[in-house]
Design a protein around this nucleic acid. Structure first.
Lengths: 188, 188
DNA sequence: GGCTAAGGCTATTAGCCTTAGCTTTATGGC
DNA sequence: GCCATAAAGCTAAGGCTAATAGCCTTAGCC
């Protein structure tokens, strides 16, 4: 029995493929093992915590991917342009990988690694807010506002909540305008 | 074997109890049956679609409960007061039943009944927007903005994403102010 | 050449969902 | 008051999954 040459990262790759193709429900150790050409228990050599840890790893990977995109999008921009680019990139990621994004909240509850990934994402938001001269507690509230807005839109969009004929793009534009205006006249 | 006097609604009640107490992961037909004092297969008499349908029913019930709260909160208010009351009520519901709210996106994907429940919720938002003279397509975009904001905040709050020391209440205040201002000067 | 560690495997257990078919209870009409 | 029938429960069984235990083999290094 030749080695399959698996690794933790490769297992996560297969997991993401499964989720993207069939949704979070389809993420099962048996399915991942089949994709990897390996027996189910062998996965425990790379993902010792079993299914729960795999879900956690998927969430961390997704969050980090998203963070990278956001960082690239805001690079070299500031204020309105940065906020607009951020929201566009955020929504774009969710649009490109809807099932993956929808699977994010499936991760086990309070996890240090996932929190750290969230922290890295928030750092990008803080960087954008620096252009508005926001710091300290108000920057925290503004960052939460930014994140809540982006996540709320992405979450509803991927969940198929926007069923009326009106284009989602326009909604995102309006949302962006409201947010930009709100940051420009931040209440404090 | 005396009758347990079960009904679809009672099954959903038990499901909600389980979710509230132990999270969405704990929602299993076996556990519901145990709570109801019934053998597992008996549940199929009331929830013919099995676990998937139960999850769907839970989501519908939760959405309707939330809608009722929102409707009560905005009753007799308009404009800023209505928006503030709406967001407070929305966040309050998620805060009171965090696991139930977090379980919402677990429902099977495109479902007519759940869509209808979502539609009823959106009707409340439209009612609030009437105070702003918004109608037609712009009202749709504004309603989505409203919903995305409320859901984004609630979703992140229940997921434990707000870990810094700053109070969530203040964040919600800021979010409300931004939204109120955005609606007052709606871009169109 | 041999040792060690890592990466596979099979076998097994336990828990769950689901279907099928039987039995009992309650109810409504006569 | 009795009986037919539908609803509501049951047991039994099948199939899927995660997870653990214990074994075997490969790869690499001393």
């Amino acid at each position: 029995m030749p080695r399959a040459g698996l690794s933790t990262a490769a297992v996560v790759d297969h997991a993401l493929d499964l989720i993207d193709a069939q949704g979070a429900e389809a993420l099962t150790l048996a399915a991942v093992a089949a994709k990897a050409g390996v027996a189910t228990p062998s996965l425990y050599k790379h993902v010792s915590g079993g299914l729960a840890e795999l879900r956690r790893l998927v969430a961390v990977r997704t969050t980090d991917d998203l963070t990278e995109r956001l960082a690239a999008a805001v690079l070299g921009r500031s204020r309105e342009a940065a906020v607009a680019a951020l929201l566009t990139a955020y929504a774009g990621y969710a649009d490109e990988f809807p099932r993956r994004y929808a699977a994010l909240p499936q991760a086990p509850d309070p996890d240090p690694e996932l929190s750290a990934a969230g922290g890295r994402l928030v750092e990008v938001l803080f960087a954008v807010l620096r252009g508005y001269g926001l710091a300290g507690s108000e920057a925290v509230h503004a960052a939460r506002t930014l994140r809540a807005t982006a996540h709320g839109y992405a979450s509803l969009a991927t969940a198929g909540a926007f069923q009326l004929a009106e284009g989602r793009d326009v909604t995102l534009e309006r949302l962006t305008e409201v947010l930009v205006a709100g940051l420009a006249h931040w209440p404090s």
